[in-house]
């Protein structure tokens, strides 16, 4: 069976959920092989979890430079493995960095680039959801090795047994004239909350929250649900919540199992970032708010009454 390469998305050996989604999606096309790029010792930390999601092989590309330069070490590693393995496809997470890795790799391999897939089919085609979920598209690589970025949350991860047989890949020396050197990293301080694009539940607040202090109500509900916190552009522009949590056309696109919109009117700008969520719950004082047109369950009321009560109910059920 043909190999399908999956770039492992990890932070210092801590594997992100999207990697398991990629390993699951890869099985539609062949046998998943994980490619680990990182500092020496990374593969040892990630190998077991990759095996439990069906990685037959684990290509290990470790070097001190792997974390020292932007994007290019990952492209170098994937292209080196692709040359020897002739994979059926290469899968990368459709994150900011993943999309860049995929783009460069497609140029290097002369491959077909498919961006932000939400599903991969056994005939090699992929499903995409564009214009903020307004259009569904099916596309396929026309020539070369398909290089596919897959949207976090687009495919549900399913465990499977894999041998995770290790193979070492030697990374070429980084050409400093062609790469940007990383001189410092400040990871997102998200506390214990899941990452916005990876979370299965997102609780967002909008202009109706009214102030930065009152976002506390949104956070408490999010924490009771184990959810990520999001914000509308109006809330971010008003300074209620940091911009990295903005959901919408100009922020993050999320498609969680459950999206709870509190005090968000539902402008087209916001809907473009969340309308592919599986279930949408909205709370808004204004019965005419457009968010209710797309909500599976809506409450016309004051979020400061509804949200705390919901927080208590969730806590009660958790015991």
């Amino acid at each position: 069976m043909a190999e399908v390469l999956v770039l492992v998305d990890h932070v210092d050996g801590e594997v992100k959920k999207v990697t398991y989604e990629l390993l699951t999606a890869a099985r539609a096309l062949g046998e998943p092989s994980a490619v680990v790029v990182g500092a020496p010792g990374t593969a040892g930390k990630v190998k077991d979890s990759l095996a439990s999601y069906g990685a037959a092989k684990v290509y290990v590309a470790e070097s001190d430079d792997a974390n020292g330069y932007l994007v290019t070490p990952k492209v170098d590693a994937l292209s080196a493995v692709a040359e020897q393995a002739s994979p059926a496809a290469v899968l990368v997470a459709a994150t900011s960095e993943g999309k860049e890795v995929a783009g460069r790799l497609a140029i290097r391999l002369g491959g077909g680039l498919l961006v932000d897939a939400v599903g991969i089919n056994s005939d090699g085609s992929v499903d995409q959801s564009i214009f903020g979920g307004a259009f569904s598209v099916k596309a396929k690589a026309a020539k070369g090795t398909p290089v596919i970025s897959v949207r976090p949350g687009g495919v549900e991860a399913e465990a499977a047994d894999g041998a995770a047989a290790e193979e070492t890949v030697s990374l070429p020396a980084v050409d400093a004239a062609k790469s940007a050197k990383i001189t410092g990293v400040e990871p997102v301080v998200g506390g214990d909350r899941p990452e916005l694009t990876e979370a299965s539940i997102v609780v967002s607040g909008g202009r109706g929250v009214g102030s930065a202090e009152k976002f506390d109500v949104i956070e408490k509900l999010a924490d009771s649900l184990g959810a990520a916190v999001g914000a509308s552009r109006a809330a971010v522009d008003s300074g209620y919540y940091p911009a990295q949590f903005q959901v919408g056309q100009t922020g993050k696109t999320v498609s969680p199992q459950l999206y709870v919109a509190l005090g968000i009117s539902g402008a087209i700008q916001h809907r473009a970032g969340m309308q592919t969520s599986k279930t949408i719950v909205a709370v808004n004082k204004d019965a005419e708010a457009p968010i209710f047109e797309i909500a599976d369950f809506g409450v016309v009321g004051d979020l400061f009454n509804v949200a705390p009560q919901l927080t208590d109910e969730v806590a009660k059920r958790k015991g």
Partner: peptide, 16 residues
């Protein structure tokens, strides 16, 4: 649009 209710003091429980 799906279901929609007015909050009559039990909106949070209804969502739950």
């Amino acid at each position: 649009a799906g279901q929609r209710v007015e909050d009559e003091g039990d909106g949070g429980s209804k969502v739950a």
